[in-house]
């Protein structure tokens, strides 16, 4: 499964009225479902529940800023509150912190890409 595709699907869904999307390719299957409430819920293959980490503002996403680098890899373990990247909002740098402890399952963002408020940047799999 392609991460870019996933990001694209979830972003595209945000702009539509769709509540649920299922995507199949070979053995892989992914379904994204937006709940009735404000927070969307995501289901991947089996029953794994993933937690999204969303952008705290409108700006440019960076994996490194002011001499600090956040090398985030898929599968790596992160702690709650750990900084995974930075959003550059004009002159202000806003950290993107992990919502929970767990493993980085999917990285949906690339370095130096423009992001909007609430855009999903990472999916975590809780411990």
């Amino acid at each position: 499964m392609n991460i870019k595709t996933l990001g694209k699907i979830s972003r595209w869904m945000n702009g539509t009225d769709l509540q649920e999307v299922t995507w199949k390719k070979g053995k892989n299957k992914i379904s994204i479902k937006f709940g009735e409430g404000e927070t969307p819920s995501y289901n991947l293959t089996a029953s794994a529940k993933l937690i999204p980490v969303n952008s705290p503002g409108v700006g440019i996403f960076r994996f490194s800023a002011r001499g600090q680098t956040f090398s985030v890899k898929e599968g790596m373990e992160v702690k709650k509150g750990q900084t995974l990247g930075i959003i550059e909002i004009g002159k202000v740098l806003k950290p993107v912190n992990s919502e929970d402890s767990g493993f980085v399952k999917i990285i949906c963002v690339e370095d130096a890409k423009a992001v909007e408020y609430g855009q999903t940047l990472f999916f975590l799999e809780p411990k």
Partner: peptide, 11 residues
Amino acid sequence: MEAVIQAAKIT
């Protein structure tokens, strides 16, 4: 203001 200006800049 900052969010609106950033939105203009990134687009």
